[in-house]
Design a protein around this nucleic acid. Sequence first.
DNA 1: CTTCGGTTTTAAGTAAGCTTAAAAATATTT
DNA 2: AAATATTTTTAAGCTTACTTAAAACCGAAG
Lengths: 223, 223
Amino acid sequence: MDQLSQAEENYLKAIFKICESEDKPASTNAIASELKTSAAAVSDMLKRLSAKEKDLVHYKPHRGVTLTKDGNQLATMLIRKHRLWEVFLCDVLKFSWDEVHDMAEQLEHIRSEELINRLDEFLGNPKFDPHGDPIPDADGNFTKRKQIVLAALKEGESGVVVGVQEHSSAFLQYLDKMELGLGVQIKVIEIFEFDSSVKVRLSNGKEFTISNKVSDNLLVQKQ
Amino acid sequence: MDQLSQAEENYLKAIFKICESEDKPASTNAIASELKTSAAAVSDMLKRLSAKEKDLVHYKPHRGVTLTKDGNQLATMLIRKHRLWEVFLCDVLKFSWDEVHDMAEQLEHIRSEELINRLDEFLGNPKFDPHGDPIPDADGNFTKRKQIVLAALKEGESGVVVGVQEHSSAFLQYLDKMELGLGVQIKVIEIFEFDSSVKVRLSNGKEFTISNKVSDNLLVQKQ
DNA sequence: CTTCGGTTTTAAGTAAGCTTAAAAATATTT
DNA sequence: AAATATTTTTAAGCTTACTTAAAACCGAAG
């Protein structure tokens, strides 16, 4: 196989994402919902993907699909490209973190290893993207961080915001409004059991309560 | 029609290029050879392009094709994108002028007006790309320059290199080797009638002879 | 171990964009 | 103007990636 089509690349990324988060083979339905397409289309593509001489996926009908070493490497490079372009868009072109996803989704398909490596260098070899997600290096290794969701902190504990689980515009814009950007220090003042909402104090002194939907999707590094 | 496919965009660009240089409708064969595809594929695409509600081309079978106002605007924006990305690749990522074409060819299809306008601004609103070709502004207007081919200079006349007609790697690398980059001043010392080769002297004092193939493809501004 | 519900695959059909080969239209020569 | 050459279009067929509908499969419950 010479080069992958954009569609094929998107399937690899989806499989990677699902396998990573669930730690088991990706189901046809999971891929379909991730890519907003039909299960039949996924079945069709999996058959074609696994038929390629260069094997990228392990696929047994009815048993789900996983990435091979090569497939994993390819998916990782797509993620590297996506996240580096996001850094470019935010740091250099001054877009905000809720605007960059769709553009990066297109840019990640640009084919040129040299281009992405030079971009990496130009950006100063960033280790994390604007949402706090780690950026794989040219060999596919990426920095792991011992991060937990804010909801896991107990009363009185503090953490620094290092990432988000949700990447929706709505959520990111909400965080902007509450000044809950990356790097902000948060202290848990009180946890309300009945709805799991959390009263927090930021390093700037502001205090307010956030829902469990928010605390479940904010990643912090415990201090 | 919502958005054009990459293939459709490439056809518009090809038609634009041909109509511009020949100042008459683009023939099926000319487009086919520009896009390295078959005449049948071109015919097929022209039929589909002209069938769109949003009219982009004027196409009469057997009579060639031209761009409508809208088609022209779209093609101009593609050229804007292509040339701005080339500036980015050369100025920011330090690629040389013979390496950037293929990458820019991909990048020009990234869909986001905001992105390209911010890139333009970040680059300092350049008026010319690394090959000396003018970059259309956001409204589609571009700076014209009274440039002529070096071959049009008479003995004793001088000019400054402002662009190239040929964009092949081989030609650009040759120019690099001869230190004939943009901005270099050239004086025509002698013209040899029998093969139209030209003896020149550069501002750095170097003297050598160039073939008519070179002097026909080097654009200069007379001084 | 059989039935039932959900999941997955197969089947059939569509659209874009390409191919080669044949037919039709246009241009050029004589 | 007729014959020939060139250009363009049509026709038939391929691949990718999708759709919907029908069939097959799998796992859990009775």
